[in-house]
Every structure is written in structure tokens, then in C-alpha cells.
Write a protein that binds this DNA or RNA. Structure first.
Lengths: 223, 223
DNA sequence: CCCGTAGCCTACTCGCGAGTAGGTAAAACG
DNA sequence: CGTTTTACCTACTCGCGAGTAGGCTACGGG
């Protein structure tokens, strides 16, 4: 084989635009998750994607647009994963349990995705922080609605909106923090981590230090 | 008064180095909290501090060093505030309660400080993320030790280290997330927000949706 | 087979901001 | 009062990386 043929071709094989966009997004998620928005370079994303920078600009726009597209895609995947895990007709503790399970399963299998979504969660300004806030608001609203339904179905007057919203924000924060902790302790099984969080937020520490434990109620379909 | 005298003097009044350092740090905390590390400029910090850039470089070092110094100072203030609120001889629920109170009081009174500490919590690399991680680890260890003491004082075998450490991480995350929520809802009294978090993590949602509520035990010194 | 379209590239510009060269001068000391 | 020390400044350099000018060519359709 001649020297010329041994080199990477000067041009890559042509692909339909949507296929190439997906490849670029895959590369961008990887680089943004490793380095964060500011420290990631368009040159590096280009290298990882295997296309030139003008291609990226033509298809996905400027760096901010590219990052927003990443957030949008990964947030959608996460919300889909959670929504597919929860059944509306289950008791509230089991709904929360399944939501947490789906969340931690997503974190385990989509670590880069999670890093992009969460690492930039408190980043300053720009369209991507709005995307992240929107995603987080959806998560908080999901939990808020669950708490309100739980409280009203037990015959209690509707709890103040702010209280359940605040509790939902705290719960989402606990989940995020525990997910980060878990990435540093991957030896702990996913179900165990989800169970710890469930026990904390459902049972509470008061009951936990007394030795009481929450466990999932058996369901018809074994897991 | 002539035009020249109306202008800001070309040189500011000389001050001892330590006084000037404090002024520079105050300015830096403000600018970093508003814009984040990358979007904050040394020019803007210089403007806010009222000294030239060479002064900042001479006293605090490069941008990263300056930011690390900010984190170190604000983290120390936060940990001092929490440590001063907690009494080791109190029952564990009251220790946690006082720690949360001190934390939210700090957030309320030092909003810029909190933003610098928390906004950059997931930033990529560099000395400042190590400072933040160290601070966060101290907070997690504080809660972890409380949980371990609680469990062992109730006659239970020492809970697995990982479980309490994971729960502590979740609790710290819940506190951070709730603090951010509260900055957007400043009309809610500090004591109420602390009480909501206390109820979530001590009582648990299971008891809360049943209408049970945790309240602080009365103490000798009224608050 | 030729032409047009869309996928794709290299080499380069330009603006931004961290950081510094080269100096001034206020204040303290002898 | 002169000298020294330390606080302080303006004007500037330089590197980096986002983004683009100007073009090539693979492939499909007529």
C-alpha cells in the first residue's frame, strides 16, 4: 500500500446531513462532558467527530448553539427514561421509587450525558443554562405534582404550593448530588443507591436511625 | 473646581497590602458571583476594586489563584457559620436543625458568597474545583458523622460507612438545591425553609403526606 | 456523460482578554 | 531634606480559539 493510501483520506465519505449531525452531537457531548463548555474547543470537537469545523458551523451553528443542542438532546433522553419508568396508577411511593430507579439507570448507562447535563447546571447565562433550567423545572414539577396528589388523596387539604415545590427542589438536588457521589463509587449497585435515596426522602432520617426501613411493595410483574 | 480635580485621581490612596487584598477579594467575589469564573474579566474586577490589574497580579496572582483565594475565604466563612450554630451535646435532630438554620442564615446574608461557592461547584478542573470539593467533603463528613453517632447511640450496629456517606451527600445536595430555590423565592422566611428541609430529611415524605410534622424540641434559651 | 447540488475542506483572520514591560510617586526612614 | 522602599499605574504584547473566505468534489439526476 502506498504512503498516500496509508494516510487518512483528506475527505471523509459523504453522509446524509442528519446522520452527520448525530455524529457531531455524539462527539460534542463527549468533549463537553470531559471539559465543560468553556474549556472544550471547537477544534477538539471537530477532531473527535472526524469532520471539519465549517461543517459543524454549517449544521449546528456557533459553539453556544451546539452546546444547547447537546443539552436539549440529552435532557430529552433523560426525561423519556424517567417517564417510561413511572406508572401513573401506582401508589405514590412506588411512583417515586420507579422514577428514581429510571433516573439512576440513566446515570449509570449515560455517564457522559449526565455529566453534560449536571456539570453545567449552575453555569452562568446563555441559552444553555435556560435549557438546563427548563429541564430541571420539569423534573421539579413532576415531583411536585406527585406530592400534591399524594397529599390530596390522603384527605388532607391541598398543601401550600410553595412547600411541595420547595420539597421537590430539595429532592431533585438530593438525587443529583447522590448521582455524582455514585459516579465516584461505581461498585455500589444501582438498586442499592436508589433504595438509600428512597429511604431518606420517604422514611426520613428519624425513622432510619430507629432501624425502620422502606422497601418496595411487591408487584405483579417481577423485576 | 477644575475639570481635572473632578476626575478620579490617576492614583488611589496608598493602603497597607492586607487592606488592599481584602478589597480586591471583595470585588472578585462580587464579579465572580455575577458572571462565573470564565465570563468574569480581570479588567472588570480591577474596575470594581478600584486598583489596576498589575496590583491584583502582584498581590493575589493569576486569575485562577484569585478565584481559589475567593473560594477559600468564602468556604471558611460558611463552615464557621455552620460550626458556630451546632452544639455537640444536643440530640441529633436538633443538631441537624441548628446546622440547617445556620446554613440558610448564611445563604440569606451572604448571597454573593453562596453564588460563588455553589455556582462553580461542578466546574471543570483547576485548583478551585479542588477547594470546592474539599469544602463539600467537609460538609458531607459533618453530616455523615452525625448520622453514624445517631445510629450507634440508638443501639444499632454501625451502619455501613457508604450508606451514611451517601445519605449525607444526598442531604447536602438537597440543601444546596433548596438554597438556590429560596434565592428565587426570598419572601419565604428562612425558618420556614429550614423547617421544610428538616421535615423532608428527618420525617420523610411518607410521614409528611400522612400529615405528621416534625418541629424543634423547646430549648432552654428561647430563639 | 454532463451539470447542479450539497457535503466537505484548508488556510486564514480577528477580537478578546490574560498578563507584563517599563515606569511613577507616596510615604517612611535616616 | 534626600534616599529608599513599596504601592501603584498606563500602554502594550501575545496567544488562543471562535469563526469564515474561498474553494473542491462526490454523487445523483436528467
Amino acid at each position: 500500500m502506498s504512503v498516500d493510501e496509508q494516510r487518512r483520506p483528506a475527505r471523509v465519505k459523504r453522509l446524509p446531513r442528519e446522520v452527520r449531525e448525530r455524529q457531531i452531537l455524539d462527539a460534542a457531548v463527549r468533549v463537553f462532558s470531559q471539559h465543560g463548555y468553556h474549556n472544550a474547543s471547537m477544534d477538539e470537537i471537530s477532531d473527535v467527530a472526524g469532520v471539519s469545523k465549517p461543517m459543524i458551523y454549517a449544521y449546528l451553528g456557533h459553539k453556544e448553539d451546539l452546546f444547547a443542542a447537546c443539552i436539549r438532546r440529552e435532557a430529552s433522553l433523560l426525561m423519556d427514561a424517567i417517564a417510561s419508568g413511572v406508572r401513573a396508577e401506582s401508589p405514590p411511593d412506588m411512583q417515586l421509587w420507579h422514577g428514581l430507579r429510571a433516573f439512576f439507570e440513566f446515570v449509570a448507562s449515560q455517564r457522559e450525558s449526565w455529566k453534560v447535563l449536571h456539570r453545567q447546571a449552575t453555569s452562568q447565562g446563555g441559552p444553555f443554562s435556560e435549557e438546563l433550567l427548563a429541564m430541571r423545572s420539569r423534573a421539579i414539577n413532576l415531583v411536585d405534582a406527585l406530592l400534591v396528589r399524594s397529599a390530596t388523596s390522603r384527605g388532607l387539604g391541598e398543601t401550600a404550593t410553595k412547600a411541595t415545590e420547595a420539597l421537590a427542589a430539595a429532592l431533585v438536588g438530593a438525587g443529583e448530588s447522590l448521582a455524582d457521589w455514585w459516579l465516584d463509587h461505581p461498585d455500589v449497585p444501582e438498586k442499592v443507591v436508589a433504595s438509600w435515596l428512597m429511604n431518606l426522602v420517604w422514611m426520613g432520617l428519624g425513622d432510619l436511625v430507629d432501624g425502620a426501613v422502606w422497601t418496595p411493595t411487591p408487584e405483579a410483574a417481577p423485576e
